[in-house]
Nucleic acid binder design. Structure first.
Lengths: 337, 337
DNA sequence: AAACATCTTTCCAGCGCTGTACATTGACGG
DNA sequence: CCGTCAATGTACAGCGCTGGAAAGATGTTT
C-alpha cells in the first residue's frame, strides 16, 4: 500500500525522474523505446501521480470553487450541473461551497483564510453588495453570477432581466391579459434581480397602455413555493382581480398554481402564469409552466471564458457579459390563439 | 499581489517559520507576547497559509469526493446538500464528481489516474457491480451509498428497501387498494434498488392475500418523469385496472400523477400513488405526493462516520449500515379513513 | 572530418509548509 | 548556587513533483 513515487518508477526503469514525468505528461520528445520502458514500469508499479505535489510545484490546482446559495434549489442544481460539465470539458474539478445566503459565509468565500486551494471562483452572491466584494476581493480570479452585485473591477455574467421580464409581460399582454400581477417581491428586501424583473414588468405594462396598480404587486415572506401560495391566496381573499401573473421564479409560480387551483380558478383560462428559471419543475406541474429560460449552458461557458482569462493573467476592468434567454411556452400561458 | 509566505511573516516578526506556523495553528506553547507579535505580522502582511503546501507536508487534504450520478436529480441534489453540510461540520470540503451513470466514468472515479487529491470518497454507484468495485478499489477510503453494489470489503450505507417498499404497499392495502401496481422497472436493467423495492412490494401483496399480477408491474424506458407518464398512460390504454401505484421514485410518481390526471382519473379517489425519495417535489405536486422518505441526514452522518474511521486507519471488513426511513403521508395516498 | 543543429535525457533547485530533533531559557527544589 | 525539568523556540530535512539549464547523443551540412 506504500505509495509509489515518481522516483520509484524512475529507478525501476533506470531513467531520471524527469523522464518519467515527461512520459506521464506525454511530452513529445521522448524516444519511443524509452517511453515504452517507462510506461511498463509505471504499469507494473501502479504509479499514480500525486496531485498535491504537482500542484505545489506548478502553482496550478486545476480546481475551481463554485459558491452558490443552495445546492438543492432546482435552479442552482441545474446550473451546477452545467458548470460541472463545462469544468470537466476544460479540465477542472469543482468544489462546491454552499453559502445558504448567509452574508457571513458569503464573505468567507472571498476572504477565505487559506489560499492556493483553487485557481478561481465562480460565485453567485445573494447578500453581498458590490462594495463588500470589491473590498474583500483577494486577488483570486473571480467571476460573479446573478444580479445581486456587480463591482466595476469584477467579471460578471447574467441575463438581461429587464428585457426578459418585458418578454414575459408582453406574452401575457398578447394573450389578452390586462390585470397582470407580479409575484415575488420579498418584504423589506428587494434584491437586485427582483428589482430588475419588476422594472421589466412595469415597462411591459406601460408599453401596453395598462395602468400600474400597486395592488397587483404581490409580496411574499420568503423564497419558497409555500410563501408564494400564501401570497396569492391572500390576494384572492382580499378580492384582488387579476388574469395573469409574472412570477419571480418557478417556486413562486408553483405556489401560485396551487393557490389558483385551490380557489377554483383555472389556469390558463382564468389566469395565465409565467414562471422564471425554467427549472425541470416547469415541465411537470399541472398545467405545465411557461417560464423564462436563462441559457444555463451559455452562462456556464461564459463564466469559464472569463475565469480562464483571469487565470491566464488578465487584470483589467470587469467585463459584464449578458447571456441570452428565451420564454419557454407551456400550458400555464400558451401562445395567444 | 505577490504571495506572502510563512517565511516572510517569520522575517518580519523576527522569529522562525515554525513559530509562525505554531501561531497559525494555535499551538498552545507559544508565549503570549510572541504570539501577539507574530499575529501582528500576519495581519500586516495579510498572510494566508498555502493549503497545497500544507497538504504536501501533512499528507492530509481535508477534502472528500462525492460521486453521484446526476447533481440535478432532486434526490441527489438534496443528498448532496446534506453531505456538504456534514462535511462542513467535520472540516472537510467536498468536490463533486458527476458520473452520469456512465460505467466508464464510474470506473474512473475509483481507478483515478491521480492520487492524493482527497482523503476519501463517498460514491453512489449505479452501474458498477460489487466485483468491479472490489477489483478497482485503490485503497483510498471509500464508502458506498445505495443498493447497486456492496462488495464485502467496502463500507456501505443504505436504507432497508425491502421493508420500505413493504411499508408503502401496506399503506395502500390499508387504504383498501387491491389492484396495486409497481412503476419503475427499467426494461432489461433491473438495478439492485428496484429489485429490492419490487420484492418489498410483492411481500406486501402476499401479506394482504392479494395475488401477484405481472400485468401490474409497469416498466419504463428510462429514469424520467416522462417515461413514467408514458408507462402509466399505456397501461391505462391497454385497459389495465389498478387502484394504487407504488413508484420506484418521485419522478416516476410525478409522471404517474400526470398520466392519471390526463386520463381523467382522480388521485387519490380512484388511484392512490406513493412515490419514493421524498424529494421536495413531493410537497408541490397536485395532489401532493405521499412518498417513502429515506433519512438523508442520517445517511450523510453515517457515511462520514464510516469514512472517517477508514481515514483514521481502519482496514477491516466492510460495515453495512442500515439507515432509517419513514413514509411521508400526503394527499396522493392519505391515511386510511 | 569538423562544425553545427536538433533531439533526448539528466541534474537539481525549488514550490511552501510541517514534523522531528535539538537548543535555549527560566523557574524551582534541594 | 547548581542541576533538573518543563516550557519555548529554532534548524532543517523532507513531502513528491516540475521547470529550466545543461549535458549527451545523434544527425546534417559543407
Amino acid at each position: 500500500m506504500a505509495r509509489v513515487r515518481l522516483i520509484d518508477v524512475a529507478e525501476l526503469a533506470g531513467v531520471s525522474m524527469k523522464t518519467v514525468s515527461n512520459v506521464v505528461h506525454n511530452y513529445p520528445h521522448v524516444a519511443p523505446a524509452l517511453r515504452e520502458k517507462v510506461q511498463a514500469a509505471i504499469d507494473q508499479l501502479g504509479y499514480r501521480p500525486n496531485l498535491t505535489a504537482r500542484r505545489l510545484a506548478t502553482g496550478k490546482t486545476g480546481m475551481i470553487a463554485l459558491a452558490i446559495p443552495e445546492i438543492d434549489h432546482p435552479y442552482f442544481s441545474e446550473l451546477s450541473r452545467h458548470i460541472a460539465e463545462e469544468a470537466t470539458r476544460r479540465g477542472y474539478r469543482v468544489i462546491i461551497e454552499q453559502t445558504l445566503s448567509d452574508p457571513v459565509v458569503e464573505r468567507a468565500v472571498l476572504s477565505d483564510r487559506e489560499a492556493g486551494l483553487v485557481d478561481g471562483v465562480i460565485f453567485h452572491p445573494v447578500r453581498m453588495e458590490s462594495l463588500d466584494i470589491a473590498k474583500l476581493d483577494p486577488g483570486t480570479p473571480l467571476v460573479l453570477l446573478g444580479e445581486a452585485a456587480m463591482p466595476v473591477m469584477t467579471d460578471h455574467v447574467m441575463i438581461d432581466n429587464v428585457s426578459a421580464a418585458l418578454d414575459a409581460t408582453r406574452h401575457l399582454v398578447a394573450r389578452g391579459c390586462r390585470r397582470i400581477a407580479f409575484l415575488g417581491v420579498i418584504a423589506a428586501d428587494i434584491t437586485g434581480s427582483t428589482n430588475q424583473r419588476l422594472l421589466g414588468y412595469q415597462q411591459g405594462l406601460l408599453e401596453a397602455g395598462v395602468p400600474l396598480d400597486p395592488e397587483l404587486v404581490f409580496t411574499a415572506s420568503e423564497f419558497t413555493a409555500e410563501a408564494g401560495l400564501r401570497s396569492v391566496a391572500e390576494a384572492i381573499e382580499r378580492g384582488v382581480r387579476f388574469d395573469g401573473v409574472v412570477c419571480r421564479d418557478d417556486r413562486f409560480a408553483i405556489g401560485a398554481l396551487k393557490a389558483l387551483h385551490d380557489s377554483g380558478r383555472s389556469v390558463p383560462a382564468d389566469v395565465s402564469v409565467v414562471g422564471w428559471d425554467n427549472t425541470f419543475l416547469a415541465a411537470y406541474t399541472s398545467p405545465t409552466l411557461t417560464s423564462v429560460a436563462p441559457q444555463k449552458t451559455a452562462i456556464a461557458a461564459a463564466a469559464f471564458d472569463l475565469l480562464e482569462e483571469r487565470i491566464a493573467g488578465y487584470r483589467g476592468v470587469g467585463r459584464h457579459m449578458i447571456v441570452g434567454h428565451s420564454l419557454e411556452v407551456r400550458e400555464s400561458a400558451p401562445l395567444a390563439p
